[in-house]
Design a protein around this nucleic acid. Structure first.
Lengths: 291, 291
DNA sequence: CAGTCCATGTTAGTTGAGCTTACATAGGCG
DNA sequence: CGCCTATGTAAGCTCAACTAACATGGACTG
């Protein structure tokens, strides 16, 4: 191996952390340095390699095509090293299990059940990232994700936990007995969208409805969005799972239902899973069968 | 990714270079630092991880089992990074093609033919490492090896170039008309062994012959060993390919022939090869067919 | 429109991780 | 035994990596 041809390692790490986190400040926090150090290292790396790694138009930088390629190689390379290092030091067994789940599912389904897992596995620490963002599963990083979709994530393995179609709902206080025959009939109402997603925007665009700007679109975390819908603050689009009791009680009215097969899936990387992950996955599957 | 859990990168690089080169001095040369820097970095890494990476018994250190695992991950991780970096900077296309070949084959077969390759591809630079050592093929490092054997190298692809059994020969000046019926009859003679290999030692051990220490074993580079055999300095074991003219001319006498299927193979890693390598491989195959 | 927040950049100065240098011990070989 | 070379240790040096301070600009809100 031609070691002299390897760019400065600190610069590679800084760039990889930036690509992983999405901003200079976050990358700096991840590495416990200032944003300025990250900025300079990325500049140094671009200069060293003679390759533009970032597209600096607009407020937030974007990875260039070259930057995407390099980031992928770096995250894989560093991930491989970290995983083996963790295995050898025994940190792997102790490292908290990293779980990503949508806020709604985390709040409504997962959190109420977690004491059961803790009672069974008190030695396993968990880190739950309630985020609608699709995070990358990688060695040494995120172990498992609970995502909403149709189960088709290339290169990953998925198991259906809870089947649940998408529904458009609103409080009976808001819509009353009004006739809602087509999506366009919803135009006069305020809308609620889960923070970090575009599901409402996409659904309306898909059904040819243009947003009425005077009525507004409010972004809220998933569980708060549902509560706002109950209070009649707007029309919400969400998984049926979370509003089933409200529909039965008549607090919320079902306006539309998207019949495409969708649900919450348990998503993992292929290959051997470390023991804490195996325990969590098998426990979660049993809970899903029970529910 | 938990960046804080990654060990110091300089230490990882130093250890990887040591594992790649096999000695502190060589690793230091590869990184352009002193051997002492490598020694200290490896010590730092062991202390940081709390894991013994080296077995320090005897003069030359050996990788421990943990060391082997870490080295493998590091060489893969750094190799991935280097390859992508080289592709992005365009260095990949320009980087000299790294070829490892046994000295005998390099001298007798490859070198005489190289002007033909250069005439066809003047833009491609070559680095030929004439060494009997089995070097690892890896991204960013060694591109292709020409090895002697039976073609069975796990995880690698091989193509037979020249079929050639192993022969034991000696100058007629040395052995004359003496009856050589069994390997044991060779015991009184001095032996010649290709530097960096144990082929002669192994062959005699395999045939139950104990070395006569007063006669000595002389290690020489492959092509010089054959010349020494011609001059009657000792018994040599080598590929038949290199001594065919001498056998026909009667300068050397064939004492034994190992009939197992062996020869010189072109060995590459699976997957996409960069253009210079593709050109070299196809050229080499055509030359082998011609010969 | 002004004010606020935050994303990114630049410059000058600081510092400690990474290294050098010098010396040491030990194994292998002729 | 002398020589060569593999590895180790300690003290000192240095510069790559970083901080702190200040700056510009984009997006959003009232």
């Amino acid at each position: 191996m031609d070691w002299s041809a390897l760019p400065p390692l600190s610069a590679l790490r800084a760039f990889a952390a930036y690509a992983d986190c999405g901003s200079l400040a976050e990358a700096g926090r991840a590495l416990n340095v200032s944003h300025a150090a990250i900025s300079q290292q990325i500049r140094n790396l671009e200069s060293h390699m003679g390759v533009p790694l970032l597209d600096r138009h607009g407020r937030r930088m974007q990875l260039s095509a070259e930057g995407e390629r390099l980031a992928e190689a770096l995250l894989e390379g560093f991930g491989t090293m970290l995983q083996t290092s963790d295995e050898l030091t025994g940190r792997d067994a102790d490292r908290p299990l990293e779980i990503s789940a949508t806020p709604g599912f985390a709040a409504v389904w997962l959190m109420p059940r977690l004491p059961l897992f803790r009672a069974r596995h008190p030695e396993i620490s968990l880190t739950i990232d309630p985020s609608a963002a699709l995070r990358t599963l990688e060695p040494g990083g995120l172990d498992v994700a609970i995502r909403y979709g149709n189960g088709d994530w290339p290169g990953l393995e998925s198991t259906l936990l809870v089947s649940s179609p998408i529904v458009v709902v609103a409080a009976t206080d808001l819509v009353g007995d009004r006739e809602i025959a087509t999506p366009a009939d919803l135009r006069p109402f305020p809308w609620l969208q889960e923070h970090g997603t575009n599901e409402a925007t996409d659904w309306f665009a898909e059904h040819g409805v243009e947003q009425d700007r005077s009525r507004g679109m409010t972004g809220l975390p998933g569980n708060m969005m549902i509560e706002a819908a109950r209070q009649g603050q707007g029309v919400a689009i969400t998984a049926r799972l979370f509003v089933e009791p409200d529909l039965e009680a008549g607090r919320l009215r079902l306006l539309f239902e998207d019949s495409r097969k969708k649900g919450y899936f348990l998503v993992t990387r292929p290959g051997v899973a470390r023991p804490p992950l195996r325990h969590f996955v098998s426990w979660l599957r049993r809970e899903a069968v029970k529910a």
